[in-house]
Amino acid sequence: METVPKGEKAQDTLKVRVWRGDAAGGEFREYAVPARENQTVLDVVTQIQREQEPDLAYRFACRVGMCGSCAMEVNGRARWTCRTHVKRVAAPGEALEIRPLANLPVIRDLATDMAPFFDKWARAGGTFQPKDAPDGAVPAEFSVVPPESKQRREADAGIECIGCGVCYASCDIVAWNPDYLGPAAMNRAWTLVNDVRDGARRERLEAVSGDAGCHSCHSTQSCTERCPKNLDPSSAIAGLKRTLFWDSLWGRLR
């Protein structure tokens, strides 16, 4: 039995269209869940899975906006569902429409295969390569990085990425060019290019250049607009382009 909090009418329902299917295809199915004053989109999906459709596939972990696993397309836009309140995306009486994240292969229902997203993260040189400690050894001395330095601030600006894939699903270039690294991977690369302790600057800049990299970005800023952590991958990519421009002109990169 559902318990109805005080002050809410038991009969209020919310209509939800949920995409059901797998890699071969699928369709929307309609559900009705109790409408609550305060509920997130993830609460709604969980209600359907617990009370109505035990085989509904979806993904979540932390429920507090830290792990990045719960992103889906909600009423046409990629969002982190655990931190998205229903009333912010659907007017009273309006239905919810929930699809798996765009630009990624569907495994089943609302669960997408994130492997291409993280593979590109690796291809963009997303791993820290300590300058003075090869093979990941712990350096003998701590690095001192002044918090006010320009590079430190550039790195800080992009460091809080939770790898949710919202930006990736919102980028037209990813949809047009399957090889395009995408905003999150290049945002990560830019934080490392600005990390003074890192020794792989050159390889990383080469990895993010060209038509599969930063040079295909149109600075349309969908990624920046939709990032739930308010990061700015578009500016990070512009930073990569700027750096590569001068490095190419002065012959620091051939």
Binding site: E206, A207, S209, G210, D211, A212, G213, H215, S216, K241, L244, F245, S248, L249, L253, R254
Partner: peptide
């Protein structure tokens, strides 16, 4: 196309 060629095209377009 190599990443380098793509980058050089981009630089050439901005310089022009």
């Amino acid at each position: 196309m190599s990443a380098r060629a793509g980058r050089h095209m981009w630089v050439a377009q901005r310089v022009t």
